[in-house]
Design a protein around this nucleic acid. Structure first.
Length: 592
RNA sequence: GGGGGCGUAGUUCAGUUUGGUUAGAACGCCGGCCUGUCGAGCCGGAGGUCGAGGGUUCGAGUCCCUUCGUCCCCGCCA
């Protein structure tokens, strides 16, 4: 670079800069060689500027420009000029000007990149992940990461303004038995013992409340050793918040304000206060899912009463055996959905555990369906109950409740998408409230915490600890955006006696309780204030706000579905010497 | 642990259903021409372990088995 310094970015120059001597540095997006004049689009993260090397203007510079190629890093000094009439480019913000180059330095050359870095080609993800540093140069990814930056910046600014303290908590922590699998870190100075990376800073943030820091937040990595999905990575980022002396209304009000600010400043979208609310039970009944996509209606409806005595054996038996029959009216799908489309929808349902996907097509001249002859009178009642009109198709799921909900919720989403009920740029928030406190784990034959074991039950439900724990409801709340759970939290248990009851309900022996959570129960005995909090998935929020399909598109260096890094090839084998220092020996055994 | 999709030139794909001559296209790359382009244009050229291994066959990109990679989903993720 010598003593050269940039005077502008590649997005700065405008007609008002004409005549100025400037110095730009960046990557060669593209070189257009006309035999005489050579044009180069110079790129940095701000934008593109055309620089011009003409043999008439400067012969030496033109000769050097002959050798440059895509992705070379170059510096130019020159004069800003107006482009000749008829050659203005309105697609670029800098498209009315260009830099006539007086001096050109090649700061570094580049191998031909394995894929084109532009807006038009789209290499597959595996090659993009292997050369992630090149993928990061693409405008789409850069915009994603800039949007993510703006989201995080607004989170910080909003919470600073509200008097929150940003406090760090440890990464090397104690493994807890509940929840996700832990990533373990062996301790060299404590041979045979391990730390666990936090699944979330849950206990630490509660202990900060005990410590008197009544408004805390942190934007922090969390780690869970579970299988990956399009919206799940083994390390992900949470906005973690905890407050004392509040109830859930206080939190919801605070957080609505946060999202109103983020959407306003990041997307220019004005949101209204008072996000809709829905009970967990309602969400499961109408959407079949605890993270309902409320961008469109088209609800599921349980029709057990209508089919309990009907002539269709499948429905009748499901009701008799305690299952559910749920219906959904695909309004106006009759025209659009061929037999093949219905088969494809059936395949989706079957892949998720359905026996099949019954349907009734409502035509002008009557009902068309493989099951209508069995249903008899019930068919008309069902159609009327579902507001069926000519042109509609009513789909049915029947079976065990959670399986029906699973596939009917996916069927609903697919219908919503295919029937065009979801518009680009729609953002629909909903609070989901009153979750069950506990969930029965048939395999482990015990209750597990639906949210986590520190969640407070509704006050009126506390007596149920001793009689019917399964019926208890929690002071928990999830914030759902466009069918994606972006955050969840609860009012916590702040009394040690209630916390002990909770651990008992979860089937911990006093010894286990003491070994795993003794320090925490002890802390609750020293004047713990009422408190509660929430955690948001920063990656998921960024995914939605950038319109991305995958969480990987908003993470600079994401991992594949097998939790590997294709670029660095992590995880890898470690030296025998490193293991020895840890007093460890690997024995890889087949898992079953 | 299970279900499904994909894997062919540097990249994105066609070809696989129904096995048959020398495996194609576009973009990129290299060379030539070209002084106002902006996904520049024209001409020419190079470039292939058809993911890997095994099998069937006179013959396999194509059929079968095994395996690896990658993506989506179920389980799992308090």
């Amino acid at each position: 670079m010598g003593d050269w310094r940039r005077s502008h970015t590649c997005a700065d120059l405008r007609p008002e800069n004409i005549g100025q001597e400037v110095c730009l540095m960046g990557w060669v997006q593209r070189r257009r060689d006309h035999g005489g004049v050579i044009f180069v689009d110079l790129r940095d993260r701000e934008g593109l500027t055309q620089v011009v090397m003409s043999p008439e203007y400067n012969k030496d510079v033109h000769a050097v420009a002959d050798s440059i190629r895509n992705e070379f890093v170059v510096a130019v000094k020159g004069k800003v000029g107006m482009r000749p009439e008829g050659t203005l480019n309105d697609k670029l913000p800098t498209g009315h000007v260009e830099v006539m180059v007086d001096e050109l330095k090649i700061l570094n050359n580049s191998n031909t990149p394995p894929f084109m870095i532009d807006d038009f080609t789209n290499a597959n993800e595996d090659i993009r992940l292997k050369y992630r540093y090149l993928d990061l140069r693409r405008r789409k990814i850069q915009n994603n990461l800039i949007t993510r930056h703006n989201i995080v910046r607004n989170m910080r600014e909003y919470l600073y303004d509200k008097g929150f303290l940003d406090i760090e908590t440890p990464f090397l922590t104690k493994s807890t038995p509940e929840g996700a699998r832990d990533y373990l870190v062996p301790s060299r100075v404590n041979p045979g013992k391990c730390y666990a990376l936090p699944q979330s800073p849950q206990m630490f943030k509660q202990l900060l409340m005990v410590g008197g820091y009544d408004k805390y937040f942190q934007i922090v990595k969390c780690f869970r050793d579970e299988d990956l999905r399009a919206d799940r990575q083994p390390e992900f980022t949470q906005l973690d918040i905890e407050m004392s002396f509040i109830d859930r209304e206080d939190l919801m009000e605070l957080l609505e304000g946060l999202f109103i600010q983020i959407f306003d400043r990041v997307k220019g979208v004005k949101l209204d206060r008072g996000f809709p609310r829905m009970s967990y039970d309602d969400a499961m009944e109408k959407y079949g899912h605890d993270a309902p996509d409320t961008r469109f209606d088209m609800f599921l409806k349980t029709i057990n009463e209508l089919v309990a005595d009907c002539g269709f054996k499948v429905f009748r038996e499901v009701v008799a055996e305690g299952g559910v029959v749920k219906a959904i009216n695909a309004k106006g799908a009759g025209q659009k959905y061929s037999r093949k489309d219905i088969d494809s929808l059936t395949e989706l349902a079957v892949s998720l555990g359905a026996g099949g996907l019954a349907y009734i097509k409502v035509n002008e001249d009557g009902l068309q369906s493989p099951i209508v002859k069995f249903l008899g009178d019930s068919a008309d009642k069902i159609v009327s109950e579902m507001n069926g009109e000519p042109g509609d198709i009513i789909f049915f799921g029947a079976g065990k409740k959670d399986i029906v909900n699973l596939y009917m919720s996916k069927v609903r989403l697919r219908l919503g998408k295919e029937l065009g009920l979801i518009k680009e740029g729609d953002y629909s928030f909903v609070w989901v409230l009153d979750f069950p406190l506990l969930d029965y784990d048939a395999e482990a034959k015990r209750y597990v915490a639906m949210h986590h074991p520190f969640t407070a039950p509704l006050d009126e439900d506390i007596p149920l600890f001793d009689t019917d724990p399964g019926q208890m409801r929690a002071k928990a709340y999830d914030l759902v955006l466009n069918g994606s759970e972006i955050g969840g939290g609860s009012i916590r248990i702040h009394r040690s006696d209630v916390q002990e009851k909770m651990f008992s309900a979860l089937g911990f022996t006093p010894e286990e309780r003491e070994y795993k959570f003794g320090f925490f129960i002890e802390a609750l005995k020293y004047g713990t204030p009422p408190h509660g909090g929430i955690a948001f998935g920063v990656d998921r929020i960024a995914t939605i706000l950038t319109g991305s399909d995958s969480i990987r598109d908003v993470i600079a260096f994401p991992k594949t579905q097998k939790a590997t890094d294709q670029m660095s090839e992590a995880p890898n084998n470690v030296d025998e010497k490193q293991l020895k220092e840890l007093c460890m020996k690997f024995e890889v055994v087949e898992s079953d």
